[in-house]
Write a protein that binds this DNA or RNA. Structure first.
Length: 733
DNA sequence: CGGATTTAACTTTTT
DNA sequence: GTTAAATCCG
């Protein structure tokens, strides 16, 4: 049965070889950053097939991004002929596919839609409204995250209701069950459902569990430290009969606790699976000594971790450079400067660089700097393409056509483009539907019977219904291409974008065009070209999945996004307290440790060189505020760090421009710092002023700072005006 | 009552 | 800088 080795096992180091050739059964691999995690996984799969004679169709490998999955496929293809039956994908896509097949067992129809966070929020909003909660008091976002946390921890509505501890949770306890009800009546799953519904399915139908257990006899999991309880339970159910479970993870790189990732999954693995073989991979092949020393010195400060030491045979390399800059503008300029230096001196390519940040909002100013200096860049993340409004509008039509029970999509588009169905009519329509015990789409169908709605509006609703109904009939008859093209024409969307000549209108048009191209690509490259397949792909795609490192461009992304990647040069920006670590983590030691791990993940992406940046002041939400350097910087081993401080200005004088380059790099003048320092402004909300023209008035609003400060005043005459403080002609009285 | 225009609020990280 | 909500206007 044992065949001769047909793939190069000898390229593995002894520890890796031990892991790859471990006996089947439960295996836990604790793999440090850069220790060859993906390599071990791919070789393990090849080993199973070639040495142990396992059929590829009995192997299931799960990753966190589609990109990681396709990369793994690619790498397996290099060492062994790839087999179509080999099942590699993300947790979400794999179980979405299983749910398509088994939906009816759970009371869903196979044409279910997948709600993204925007859809979820709309659903929560409408529930808040119907249950008479003020959306101002209960932010849909926080309601949603509470529900999501419960779901990913496998706490069902009934259990949640029994365990409420705060008034807020009491409210959630009312919303959560209704949220689940509506998902089901809308024939929709949210992201969490894609993981927990299969658990219910398997618990309810043991024969189905057996079916999938025998289909998935060898299960491999990547990034195991980021699995949540639901994912663990899924893996556990599927693997408990054969116990051929091979997981790879690193507790130091766990950065998704906020999404329900639970380190207990690593710590309790041995308990749930007896005779677990545990391996450690501690040799790093990626980074220089100095980078590793820096990274280790940071993560060592965490208390809740398994002790381990990464080591490397590489040379020491250059030191980690820290730059103190004046503000985010100078940060951008310095990033550009350092990139140009590296390109010039070391003959690097733009694609050698990644610029990392904690929040997506930080990217814009960096983009500006790069663009002005003619450096091409690609940005990963931020507002995802398929989440743009104009794209989501078209998708909502498509989702409704596939699944008319999707009321979130229906509500979104029934009056978009505007067709004379306003809020009031829509509310009446909804009330009528409820009184008749109909779902919204059927109410739309029968809108002519609703007397409370004006005839004109009834006609509009009818026309809307006819459009949707037409395309429901067409969806299996014409190609996806034709369907979408005629749809945006007939609905008036196309005409609307065509006549919009504003700047935003232009980018909308471009995005719609790009969307049409994406459909072309999909129809051309995928074997399955159904509406259903397309919508599913779109729902589960991540921005990183489309990222191509080969392009000659600097990459910009969040620290979270960078997990699993590597670059010759890594630049981490915004290393300031309350940004990294983020302010919300400061009063919670567990959150703070996660922030530190995030920094660690960033550092360990680097092969050769790390640049770190922090600003003395940074504007945030229209507010300029002074900043303290990140406390994590003090954790760095000083022997591997070069720290360059900004020139300290004298009190009352404007900052010296630190480098000529900065002045050239920015088109806009820097704010006048002298003004800011004097501006413990006498203007306060509520004080009275006298204006040269308008007379006496009261300050009712102050926005911004420095030269950009605006002040809102309500005059005794009753009129309200807004002025730029610096130009306004009034005196305080 | 619906549409258009103005105003306000919002930014942690993502499948 | 973006988008939903509030307000105004026909």
């Amino acid at each position: 049965m044992i065949k001769k080795t047909t793939f190069p096992l000898e390229t593995l180091n002894p520890q890796q070889l031990e892991v790859v050739t471990a006996n089947p059964g439960p295996v836990l691999v604790l793999a440090g950053a850069g220790s060859g995690k993906t390599r071990v996984l791919t070789y393990r799969i090849a080993y199973l097939i070639h040495e142990l004679g396992v059929s590829p169709r009995e192997i299931l490998a799960m990753t966190f991004t589609n990109k990681a999955a396709s990369e793994m496929k690619e790498r397996i293809a290099k060492i062994t002929p790839i087999d179509k039956n080999l099942w590699i994908g993300t947790f979400h896509s794999i179980f979405a596919r299983i749910l398509r097949v088994e939906a009816e067992n759970l009371g869903y129809q196979p044409d279910f839609v997948i709600y993204d966070s925007d859809d979820q929020e709309r659903l929560v909003k409408s529930i808040l409204q119907d249950l008479n909660f003020a959306p101002s008091q209960y932010a849909p976002k926080s309601v949603l995250s509470a529900i999501s946390r419960a779901k990913s921890s496998l706490i069902l509505p009934e259990a949640f209701i029994r365990s409420t501890k705060s008034p807020f949770e009491e409210v959630i306890a009312q919303i959560y069950p209704e949220y689940q009800n509506r998902l089901k009546t809308h024939n929709a799953f949210d992201f969490d459902d894609l993981l927990i519904s299969p658990i219910f399915l398997f618990e309810k139908f043991p024969d189905l569990l057996e079916k999938y257990q025998s289909r998935m006899k060898y299960i491999l999991v990547d990034e195991y430290q980021d699995t949540n309880r639901a994912q663990y339970q899924l893996i556990y159910l599927l693997a408990k009969s054969h116990k051929n479970l091979f997981v790879v993870g690193d507790d130091d790189q766990s950065i998704y606790r906020w999404r329900g990732a639970d380190l207990r999954n690593i710590l309790e693995f041995e308990k749930d699976f007896a005779d677990t073989q545990i391996f450690r991979l501690e040799q790093n092949y990626r980074s220089t000594q100095n980078i590793l020393i820096a990274a280790n010195s940071v993560v060592r400060k965490n208390l809740g971790r398994k002790e381990k030491t990464l080591w490397s045979k590489k040379e020491h390399g250059e030191k980690v450079e820290i730059f103190e800059v004046r503000d985010e503008r100078e940060e951008g300029a310095t990033v550009v400067e350092k990139i140009q230096e590296e390109v010039f001196r070391k003959k690097r390519h733009f694609s050698d660089f990644v610029v990392l940040y904690r929040t997506n909002a930080q990217s814009r100013i960096l983009e500006d700097s790069l663009r002005r200096n003619g450096i091409s860049y690609v940005i990963v993340g931020g507002v995802r393409f398929y989440e743009r409004k104009e794209i989501k509008d078209i998708l909502a039509y498509l989702k409704l056509i596939m699944n008319p029970r999707d009321e979130v999509s229906l509500n979104r588009i029934i009056n978009f483009p505007a067709r004379g169905i306003g809020d009031v009519s829509l509310q009446r329509l909804q009330n009528w539907a409820r009184s008749q015990n109909l779902d919204l789409f059927h109410a739309v169908q029968k809108a002519e019977e609703i007397e409370e709605i004006p005839t004109r509006t009834r006609q509009s609703i009818k026309r809307f219904y006819q459009i949707i109904q037409t395309y429901i009939g067409l969806k299996d008859k014409i190609s996806l291409n034709e369907l979408v093209r005629t749809l945006i024409d007939e609905t008036g969307l196309l005409a609307m974008y065509k006549t919009d000549t504003s700047v935003e209108g232009e980018t909308r048009k471009e995005n719609v065009q790009e969307f049409l191209n994406a459909i072309n690509d999909y129809v051309r490259t995928d074997k399955e070209t159904s509406l259903r397949g397309f919508l599913e792909e779109v729902a589960l795609i991540a921005d990183i999945d489309n990222w191509d490192q080969k392009a000659n461009a600097v990459t910009l992304m969040t620290l979270h996004c960078a997990k699993g990647l590597e670059f010759p040069v890594v630049m981490i920006t915004g290393l300031e307290d309350s940004l990294l670590p983020i302010s919300r983590s400061l009063d919670n030691s567990e959150d703070l440790e996660e922030e530190r791990r995030l920094f660690y993940v960033g550092l360990t992406r680097a092969k050769e060189k790390v640049y770190l940046f922090y600003a003395l002041q940074r504007s945030f939400m229209n507010d300029m505020a002074f900043r303290l350097p990140s406390r994590f910087l003090d954790d760095l081993d000083p022997s591997v760090v070069n720290w360059t401080k900004a020139v300290i200005r004298e009190y009352g004088k404007p900052f010296q421009r630190r480098r000529q380059f900065v002045a050239e790099a920015s088109f806009e003048p820097h704010p006048d710092y002298e003004n800011i320092s004097q501006e413990t402004s006498p203007l306060k909300i509520g004080i009275m002023i006298e204006h040269e023209i308008y007379g006496r008035g009261k300050v009712i609003r102050i926005e911004g700072k420095g030269q950009k400060q605006k002040v809102g005043i309500r005059f005794d005459s009753g009129v309200e005006k807004k002025f730029m403080t610096q130009y306004a002609r009034f005196t305080i009285i």
